[in-house]
Amino acid sequence: MSWRGILVYAENYSGSIHRASFELLGKARGLLPKIGGVLHAAIVTSEENAEKHSKELIAFGADEVLEYIVKERFLPNPVVHRNALIDAISYAKPKLVLVPATPWGRSIAPRVAAAIRTGITADCLDVYVDDAGDIVQVRPAFTGNIIAHIKTLTSPVMATVRPGVFPLPQPDYSRKGEAIAKNLSLSEDDDVRVVGVSKRKTVKLSEATIIVSIGKGVRSKEDIKLFEELAKALNAQLACSRPLVDMGWMERDRQVGFSGNIVRPRLYIALGISGAPQHIAGMKDSQYIIAVNTDPSAPIAKYCDLFVVGDIYDIAKKLLQALEGFKEVK
């Protein structure tokens, strides 16, 4: 059996495709000349959205879209996506399978890898083809302390890839491609029933371009207002280190770090955060990092571009005053 081309799993459990799927299509197009074959996208979608979704995936780079059309209520069911992806792999026989390393992707993809007994690499930051023509996957391990380059000896090579590391390609709606409707036999068993959405996230730090992040330098829950104001003035998202979530001062969706969100904004401002390895793991790839801390020997000094030695309350107040004369860029 020969394995050719690339398959991108397009994440869709809510009715809209996760943007990381498009990033992966862009990356895959770049890899394709070295790997050969065609670029497939596989999607579980509904009757209503199938055509629109396939057009989108083709515009972002897919040659052939494998559509698994299910009733709306089956969309958020992981079993359906597992079965679809296994079917898509056996149909397309791709050399490489890319899945967004979202919580959802990191739940579906490993199941599929185990089912088809192939190797899988988690949360990759890059994928490239080396001089020997082998696919190499680049991933962080040990809470982001180590970067490892990994090869897979079995086929297909499977990887979950971190959202936001590859640029969103420019869609081209004149691109030609094919949509292939694929059947999925849905068993009527009730092993997994999705009862409903309990809460949609209002903050998505992974997509923020400017982040103001607060740590234990903040002395009380009420004081957070000041930093909220600062975030607003800079058109930024407010985030935090883990202790603030543990104390119940901030919601978990705003936590940055190993056990929170991995972010890579254009600007990350860390206020009263010491820079523990678990926090650094979540923000070190930000383009520009400013730290404000009274302690110039805080570990975060090694991971920032500008270190303001000072009190976060004092700096926040003065900065807010000074900003009144400026317009933020929308």
């Binding site: 190797g119 990994i150 000896l153 090694k302 991971y303 571009d305 270190f307 030695v309």
Partner: peptide
């Protein structure tokens, strides 16, 4: 099926902060 072919410190480089 997977093999580490190369590994290095991710944080060693750090950044040169201006104080």
């Amino acid at each position: 099926p997977t093999r580490v072919v190369k590994a290095y410190y991710a944080l060693e480089k750090g950044r040169m902060a201006r104080f």
